[in-house]
Nucleic acid binder design. Sequence first.
RNA 1: GCCCCUUUAGCCCAAUGGCAGAGGCAGACGACUUAAAAUCGUCACAGUGUGGGUUCGAGUCCCACAAGGGGCACCA
Length: 827
Amino acid sequence: MQEQNTSENEYDIVAIQDKWLPIWDDIKPFNSGLADDTRPTKYVLDMFPYPSGDLHMGHAEAYALGDVISRYWAQKGFNVLHPIGWDAFGLPAENAAIKRGLDPRGWTYENIEQQKSSMRRYACSFDWDRVLQTCDPIYYRWNQWLFLEFYKRGLAYRKNSNVNWCPSCQTVLANEQVVQGLCERCDSVVTKKALTQWYFKVTEYADRLLDDLDTLEGNWPSKVLTMQRNWIGRSHGAEVDFEIEGRTEPVTVFTTRPDTLFGATFMVVAPDSDLAAELASGSTPEVRMAFQAYLDDVKKSNDIDRLATDREKTGVFLDRFAINPVNGERLPIWAADYVLSDYGTGAIMAVPAHDDRDMAFAVKFELDVRTVVDTGEDDPSVTKVATTSEGVLVNSGEFNGLPKADAIKAITEYLEISGKAKLAKNFRLRDWLISRQRYWGTPIPIIHCDDCGEVPVPADQLPVELPSAAGLDLKPKGSSPLGAAEDWVNVACPKCGAAAKRDSDTMDTFVDSSWYFLRFLSPNSEEVPFPKEEAARWAPVDQYVGGVTHAILHLLYARFFTKALHDMGMINFEEPFTRLLNQGMVLMNGSAMSKSRGNLVALSDQLDEHGVDAIRLTMAFAGPPEDDIDWADVSPSGSAKFLARAWRTANDVRSEVGVDFAKGDATLRKATHSFLRDFGPLIENFKFNVGVAKVMELVNALRKTIDGAAGPTDPAVREAAEVVAKALSLFSPYTAEDMWSKLGHQAPVALAGLPEADLSLVVESSIVAVVQVDGKVRDKFEVATNISADALRELAMGSDAVKRSIGDREIAAVIVREPKLVNIATK
RNA sequence: GCCCCUUUAGCCCAAUGGCAGAGGCAGACGACUUAAAAUCGUCACAGUGUGGGUUCGAGUCCCACAAGGGGCACCA
C-alpha cells in the first residue's frame, strides 16, 4: 500500500522539536516582565544549577518537575515568574582551572553556555530575559553591599576560632566539605586549626529561625522541617553558678536538668577551653603536666575518633573543686573532651545517675553516683546504668517528692533568689563561617589598616572586582591566592589614606545563593540589589523546587538572609519560600549514577534517543516526585509511544475550530470533564504521576471514540483533543504544541488556558450499589443516585443472594451509606 | 543507640475507612500484514511485609515486629 505524506501522519519528535524551538524563542511565551500584564502573579523557582559540565539526569528530573508546576499556573491564567541562573562561584571551577592551568572564568562561562543551550532544548518555561550568574561583578557587588549592611548591624564579624583544616589541601573546609571526618576532595584526615575568620551571626536569629518553621508546616516536607529543627537544636534549661575554691569568680554551667542538682558528683570542663587552662595553671605542677599532655592528645584527635561510637571516656583530674550551690558539697573538677568548648559555657555539672555520658565517665574514673530521681527503674548507683526518664525526686532535701517538671521549676527558682541560677536556653546552631582562602568567590569588601583596623570599602567603590587570575598561583597553600595579587591587595585606607591591604579572603558560595531569588526581580540593576516594589509584587517565592541535599544549609541561610533583609526594611515577609518540593534522585540499578560505578546514563543520549518530551514525561510519570527514580525501572520508549498515540488523535480530528462541543458525544464529554475536575488538584498536590495517568486515560477514551460510532467528526472529539494538548503541555511541550497546531490553533498552547470542568456533564443519574454481609460483597444492583436510605435498605434486604448469605443468623445492625453501600452485620 | 519514611500483581505505581486496580512497563492472545515492525484491541483469584487491635467494614487508623531507605548521633 502506498503511504501518504509521511510527515503529516507520522510522529517525528525531532522534526517537531526543530520546528517549535525557534518559534518559541521568537514569541517568548514566558516573558513575565510586561508592564501592562494584569494577570495575578506566581513565583515558581527551581534551585539554580552549578555549572559543572553539561546537564545530567538529575537536572532533567528537577527541571521537568518544576516546569510542570510553572506551566500549570501559566495555564491557569497566572503571570508566572520562572527564572533561571547559575550558581557560578566555587571550588570545582577553581580546581578544574588549576588542573588545566586556565582561568576559572573560561571554564565557568563555557559550562554555563553549554547548560544554557541544553536548557533551551529541554524547553523549560524560563523567562530568558532574567538570567543571572553569581560570578558576574554586577551580581556579586550586591553580595558585598549586603555584607557591609550586615557589618553595620553587627551581623558580620570576625573572630578567632578552631576551624576545619585539611592539611593536604592547605585550606579551611566548610562543615559540609568534611565527610566522616575526611576531606571530601582528597580524603585526608581533617584537623582543627585556630584561625581568624569572618562569620555571619545566624545565632542571633536562632529563635525566629526555629519558631517560624511552624508557619511552613504543611507546605514544606515535614522531613525538612525536622532536619532544620534538629540542626538549630534549642534546649531549655538553667544556667547555674558554682563557686570554685581558690577562684573569685564562680563558674557557670548550663543544664537541662536542674532537678538533678543534688545528684551532681563532679564537674567537667572542656579541655580546649580557657577555663580549663586557667584551672590547671592554678593547680599542682603534676596536674599542669598531665593536663598539657591530655590537651595535646585532644588536639591531635580528629573527628573520626571523636565520632566513634562506644568511645572510651578520657579525662584528667584538675585537683580543683567546685561547690554545689544547693548543698555546699565539694565537687572534683575534671577536664574531658566529651564536653565541648563551644556549646553552653564549656563546663557542666556531672550527674552520673541520670546521664549516660556522665555515668560512663564516673564508671571509668570511679567517681560517686548518687541517685536523686526515682524513676521506678533499678537504682543507678547500684546498676551503673543511668536512668533518664521521668520520676520523683529523692535525696534532694526539701525538694523530695516533686516530679521532674515541678522540681526543675522549684530548684531554679530557689537558686534564682540568691542569684545563683537563671532560666536559659542554648542552641546547637553555630554562627556561619563565611571566609574562604580561595580565589573563585566574592572578595570580602574590607580593608585592613594598621591604624584604623577593619575599614569597610565605601559603597561607591563597589564592586571590589576579582583581579585576573593570570599570574596568580591558585593552588591552595593556606592563605588566599588573592594575597599575592600585589596591585589589587595594596590600597590606600579609605579613612586615613595610609597604605593598607584588602581582605584577601572570598565569601562562601552559600552567600550567593542566600538571596538570588530576590535578584531575579531585577538581575541587571546597578542601583539596588532588588527593587522594593518588585519584591512586594512577586516575592516570596510561591513554589520552590530542589533536592533534599539542601534541606539544611542553603535553606537555613536563605531563611536567615530573608529575616535580616526584613529587619532592614527591604522586604515585608519573613520566609523566602512559601511552598517547597523536594524531588528525589535519578538512580540506575539501585544506586546513584557515577562514572566509577559504570552506571552513568547520559542525558544527551536519552534526549537523542527518545526526544525531549518523552524524557520529561517519564520523569513526571515515574512515581511520586519526592521518590527516587530508578532509570532501569521506567520506560522512556513507552512514554514516546504514548506521545505518538496522543499526537495521532489530534491529527485525526475532523471538525472545525469553534465547533459547538455541546453537540458532542456524551460519553467522551463526560470523560473530558471528569478529567478537568481531577487534573488540577492532582497537579497542585504534586501527584504528577497520577495526572499523567489521567491524561492517558483521556487519550484512551478519545481513541475509542474516534474509532467508534461517533467518529472523528464528533465535536466531543475536538474538545477532548484540545484538552489533551493543553494538559500535555505541562509535561511534553513540543508534542502538545504540534497537536495544538494540528488542531488549527496558534502557538503557544502553553497559554491556551485549561478550562473549568462542567460538572453537570459528570453527574451520574444511576450508580451500582453494593450490599455486603459482614463486610463481604453479596449482591450489587443499579440504583438512582438520589435513592433514599430506606429505599436502599429495602432493596438490599429483599435480595435473594443476601438472604441466602444471611441464612438463619440474626441481624445485628444494618449500615446504609446511600447510594453506594449497605452492610448487614449478623450476630 | 534515637527519630522519620517506605513496604499493594513479575516490575514502576493508583486507590476521601466502603466492590483492592486508575495508568504504564514486561507478557499472552486477537485484528491488520505474504511476513514482521508499527498500529488497534482483548486479557489480572494479588488479598496489600508479619502478628495483634479498633470498627458494621482496614491497603488506609492504633500497637509490636521484620526488611529497605533517610536523618541525627558525646549539644549537658
